[in-house]
Amino acid sequence: MTETLAVQLKGVVQKRSNFQLGPIDLAIPKGYITAIVGPNGSGKSSTFRLLLDLVKADEGTIEMLGQEVGSSPDVELNKKIGYLPEESWMHEEKMKATEKAEFQRFWYDKWDVNRYQELLRLLEVDPNQVLGKMSKGSRRKFEFALALAHGPELLLLDEPSSGLDPLAWKTMIDVLHRYMDRGDRTILMTSHIVEEVKRLADYIVFMSQGHVLGMYEKDELFSSWFVYFVSGERISAALAAKMPGQCGVEQAGGTTYRITTNQAAAAEQWCLEQGLELVSSQAMELDEIMAALLMQDRLNARSN
């Protein structure tokens, strides 16, 4: 495995009676935050369970931090990983937070009790509560503190802000930015919160129906996907469809067309060369980009 990768999946397939995940080929770079986004049921949480060896893949290989997952006892590998699941474990409902923290501490050589206590204060969590009696937000903040307390090299966060109020969400964002300051740590997260992805992610992976639609550098993604309103005497649906990166064409009235593209710079140059007028342009939001990718995926599936 290349030293610059924190996670690598090669040809990974998991087959179930009502769902197939993969084949997935994915390379997550070290030292960055990568967010996986996609509709519910697209396979995001299933991918995390495979990474943690909680379930087995039917095909392919998975490597994390230079070690193949499941090839040997993963005790040392697991010490380098922090995990925040989307759902809390039901069998822990009757435990006190302090009891779970003591159990967790036993498994991690680098457990930092001062860091753990600092996170509890920052997040305003009472560790003397019974886990099952905590509010969803308090439970989430407690689990978040646990995931970070041993200073993991790789942090897996499944919908980290679920149940958090705006103030707690902002605190979590600040904590994660500080966590990444060293430059040698990696976060792989899932999220459906557009602002969260924009504030945190360096790379964005789009998933749908068990497979990866694409992985993009965030700034490049947002500078490439645009909607243009184009007008001109010779404009037509056929010509509009030839715009570089074209992902959708609609007539907007008269001789004006609404064109979606994922190659903004090339599209603007093309309009200039074709003698067409750029009436207006609008950068696309993350959810709009995902909708366009999902539409492309459906069209490709039909054509195949």
Rank of each mutant, 00 (worst) to 15 (best):
residue 210 G to Y: 05
residue 133 K to W: 10
residue 119 L to I: 02
residue 116 Y to C: 04
residue 206 F to N: 03
residue 62 I to Q: 05
residue 251 Q to A: 13
residue 101 A to G: 02
residue 142 F to Y: 13
residue 180 M to C: 06
residue 225 W to P: 06
residue 177 H to G: 08
residue 7 V to I: 14
residue 201 A to Q: 13
residue 244 P to K: 01
residue 159 E to W: 03
residue 110 K to D: 10
residue 59 E to C: 03
residue 257 Y to W: 15
residue 182 R to M: 13
residue 172 M to D: 12
residue 195 E to V: 10
residue 163 G to M: 14
residue 242 K to A: 15
residue 230 V to E: 03
residue 164 L to G: 09
residue 2 T to S: 11
residue 56 K to P: 06
residue 29 P to H: 09
residue 67 Q to S: 12
residue 49 R to P: 06
residue 243 M to K: 07
residue 220 E to P: 01
residue 104 Q to L: 14
residue 70 G to W: 04
residue 9 L to C: 08
residue 98 T to L: 07
residue 62 I to K: 00
residue 139 R to K: 08
residue 64 M to C: 14
residue 298 R to Y: 09
residue 303 S to Y: 01
residue 228 Y to Q: 04
residue 184 D to M: 00
residue 203 Y to K: 14
residue 240 A to G: 04
residue 109 D to R: 03
residue 134 M to K: 03
residue 263 Q to A: 15
residue 120 L to W: 05
residue 228 Y to G: 05
residue 87 E to H: 07
residue 222 F to Y: 08
residue 238 A to I: 11
residue 57 A to Y: 03
residue 291 A to C: 07
residue 245 G to M: 02
residue 213 L to C: 00
residue 97 A to S: 05
residue 300 N to H: 08
residue 59 E to F: 00
residue 222 F to N: 07
residue 287 D to C: 00
residue 78 N to M: 15
residue 223 S to W: 14
residue 131 L to D: 00
residue 162 S to F: 07
residue 83 Y to K: 12
residue 256 T to D: 07
residue 20 Q to V: 10
residue 130 V to L: 00
residue 127 P to Q: 02
residue 233 E to M: 11
residue 90 M to C: 01
residue 291 A to N: 10
residue 268 E to G: 04
residue 237 A to L: 11
residue 160 P to V: 10
residue 235 I to M: 15
residue 210 G to C: 02
residue 52 L to E: 06
residue 216 Y to V: 02
residue 223 S to C: 10
residue 167 L to K: 15
residue 221 L to T: 03
residue 224 S to Q: 11
residue 204 I to F: 09
residue 33 I to D: 14
residue 153 E to K: 02
residue 46 S to V: 13
residue 147 A to E: 04
residue 59 E to Y: 04
residue 293 L to M: 07
residue 262 N to F: 13
residue 216 Y to M: 00
residue 286 L to Y: 05
residue 202 D to L: 14
residue 158 D to W: 15
residue 61 T to H: 08
residue 217 E to A: 14
residue 128 N to Y: 12
residue 22 G to C: 02
residue 61 T to L: 00
residue 100 K to N: 12
residue 288 E to W: 02
residue 273 E to Q: 12
residue 138 S to P: 05
residue 49 R to T: 03
residue 53 D to C: 07
residue 1 M to A: 12
residue 238 A to H: 12
residue 216 Y to Q: 11
residue 251 Q to L: 14
residue 213 L to E: 01
residue 135 S to K: 11
residue 299 L to I: 07
residue 194 V to Y: 09
residue 259 I to D: 12
residue 245 G to E: 10
residue 268 E to N: 09
residue 32 Y to K: 15
residue 135 S to F: 03
residue 302 R to K: 13
residue 68 E to A: 13
residue 27 A to H: 07
residue 73 P to Y: 09
residue 34 T to G: 05
residue 16 R to M: 11
residue 264 A to L: 10
residue 130 V to F: 01
residue 79 K to W: 00
residue 78 N to K: 15
residue 9 L to T: 04
residue 99 E to S: 04
residue 237 A to P: 06
residue 68 E to C: 10
residue 292 A to P: 02
residue 130 V to T: 06
residue 15 K to N: 12
residue 66 G to I: 00
